[in-house]
Simulated assay, not measured.
Amino acid sequence: MKRNQWQGWGAGEQPQQHYLIEPRALAGGGDIRHVTEFLRASGWREKSTKRGPLVLESPDRTVRLSYDPFGMPGGWSIRGAAEGHQAEWWATLGPQTPVEIVAGLTDALTQPRSAHAPNVWAPLAEQHWQTGPEGRHYTATSPDGAACLHFRQDPDGAAVWWAGAGDRQGNGWTAQLAPTTPLHLVHAFGAALASPEPVMRPRGRVPHSAQIRTTSVSVLPSQLGAWQQVRITAARAAAWARNRPATRPRTMARQARITPHARSRARR
């Protein structure tokens, strides 16, 4: 096929109809590559078996992520090994959890942890979520009531982070995070959950929900590819910065090799 016959190239490409969806918590699962390609670009290794679920492992081998759309209950599973003062932890997110919200947590896995524990509830309160204690629990609920994040404790003291979203048509998802989940990950997850930014879905992938607002947009395939590449490039750059060896400037190293006797002669 000649290049000028292919509509996916250059001036011949055709715009595709997509939709910006608000609130993002009800946008449906989306393209899992938004999560997985960022992790691969950050140095995560493929550990999938031929007929098993998708599995990726962190560069230091302490965290494993899997995605299985066909299992029960299916969806995302993340497990972190015990390391130093950090206890073992886990997180499970249903298959209809928007990938942009999943990425809030998984992107944070590639970033250095702050020395100070963040206020998990701050990003939700900033978006006017109703937050406060409810008995043994502490909850945050979105202004439209469609999404929530809870820290739940039963009478025996067992605890879990629980999040979810749903509409009156039965669309929705739930997620659970172990109480030992590092707080910077819970914070990042909550920030992505509460973000007012809409998310994009192609035609045919928009949930049938009376509680979402949609804006139709025309997008070129090259634009989609460019936006995805920006995210991947940022992940690669961050991975390179983390892994590059610490080196001193050559001038400093040269000065370090000059002996006091040589410096004395140089001043004469």
Rank of each mutant, 00 (worst) to 15 (best):
L185V: 01
Q223F: 15
A115E: 10
P198L: 08
C148M: 11
H150D: 09
A147L: 01
R168Q: 03
W162N: 07
T181H: 08
P112C: 13
G157C: 03
P133Q: 07
L124M: 15
P196H: 02
Q223H: 15
Q127W: 10
E197S: 11
P143I: 02
V206F: 04
T181I: 13
Q130I: 02
T139P: 05
Q169K: 08
R205M: 08
W129I: 03
S114P: 11
A188W: 04
T174F: 08
P196E: 05
R152F: 00
W227L: 15
V199K: 04
S218G: 13
A188Q: 00
T131N: 09
G145T: 03
Q111A: 14
G172C: 08
H184Y: 09
H128D: 13
P207E: 09
R136C: 09
T214R: 10
G170R: 09
A175S: 12
T214C: 13
P112F: 07
L224I: 15
D154F: 03
D167C: 00
L193C: 00
V199A: 00
S209N: 01
T180Y: 03
D156S: 13
H208I: 14
P207A: 11
A117V: 14
Q130T: 10
G145P: 08
A165Y: 07
E134A: 05
G135Y: 12
V217T: 12
P118I: 09
L124P: 01
G170E: 03
S142T: 08
Q127E: 13
Q153K: 12
H184P: 07
V199S: 03
A125E: 11
L149G: 04
Q223M: 14
A210M: 13
Q130P: 07
I212C: 04
S222K: 14
F151M: 07
P112K: 14
W162I: 06
S195W: 01
S142A: 10
Q223W: 10
W161P: 05
W162Q: 09
A192K: 05
S216Y: 10
H116F: 12
Q223I: 09
A122S: 15
S218D: 14
